Simulated assay, not measured.
Amino acid sequence: MSSYVDTTLVSPYADIMTGQSITLARSLPKLGAAVRRLRSDRGMTQAQLAEAAGVSRQWVVAVESGSKHGLEVGLVMHLLDTLDASLMVRDDRPDDAS
């Protein structure tokens, strides 16, 4: 495979990734901790975040505690968008795995 990269095909999002804080959230408790940290960093209360995201405060509490099983991905994405954050999916397989 060529090491040449067609820069017209590279997302402009890659340009803003440098220096960004990335939190690995491989479990619901880690996702909840990341949401709690982001909310706190933005100076928001759970009630303020819930209102801005259009969800209940109880839902935010459950997400932050890591106890909300069966999360609707669309709601999580909307919550993260409200916090000016995003979700990244990374392939954790070793390079030599088939």
Rank of each mutant, 00 (worst) to 15 (best):
T18V: 14
T7Y: 02
V5R: 03
G32F: 03
A85P: 05
L83F: 08
S86L: 10
A14P: 05
T45F: 06
L87V: 09
L9M: 10
D95S: 06
S56W: 08
L79D: 02
A52Q: 13
S86W: 07
G74D: 14
G74N: 12
D41Y: 00
T23D: 13
M17W: 12
R42T: 09
V73K: 00
I16D: 13
D6K: 03
V73A: 12
R57Y: 05
D41K: 06
G54M: 06
T18K: 15
D41M: 06
L38E: 12
D95N: 08
R90Y: 11
V5I: 14
A52L: 10
G74Y: 10
L87A: 14
A52M: 10
Q58I: 10
V76T: 07
R93V: 03
M77T: 09
Q20F: 05
Q46F: 05
A53V: 07
D15L: 14
T23S: 13
L31E: 01
W59P: 00
D95F: 02
V73M: 13
Y13I: 12
R93W: 00
G19E: 03
P12A: 14
Q58D: 11
Y13L: 15
S86Y: 10
V76L: 15
M88A: 13
T82L: 04
G74C: 03
T8P: 00
A33R: 08
M77P: 01
H69V: 15
V60H: 00
V35E: 08
A33K: 11
L71N: 14
D41Q: 08
L80G: 08
G70S: 12
Y4D: 11
Q58L: 05
G54Y: 07
A97C: 05
T18P: 06
A34N: 11
A53L: 09
R37D: 11
V73W: 10
L28Y: 07
S21N: 12
M1H: 08
V73S: 06
G43S: 04
M17N: 06
Q20A: 15
A97V: 06
V10C: 04
S86E: 15
S40R: 11
S56K: 12
I22T: 14
S27M: 06
K30C: 10
E64G: 07
G43F: 02
P94G: 07
M88K: 13
R37A: 12
S67T: 14
L49C: 03
A50K: 07
S40V: 03
Q20T: 14
E51C: 05
E51A: 13
Y4V: 10
R37F: 02
D84W: 01
A14V: 15
P29H: 06
V61C: 09
D96T: 02
M77R: 15
A34I: 05
A47K: 11
P29I: 02
S98N: 03
M44K: 12
D84T: 05
V60T: 02
Y13E: 15
A52H: 05
M1K: 04
G54L: 04
A25R: 09
L87Y: 04
S86D: 15
L87M: 15
S11P: 01
A52T: 09
R90D: 10
S65T: 10
G43T: 04
S27P: 03
V89W: 06
D91V: 09
L49Y: 02
S56C: 01
G43C: 06
A62S: 15
A33E: 11
R42A: 11
A33V: 05
A62E: 11
R39H: 03
R36L: 09
T45E: 01
A14S: 11
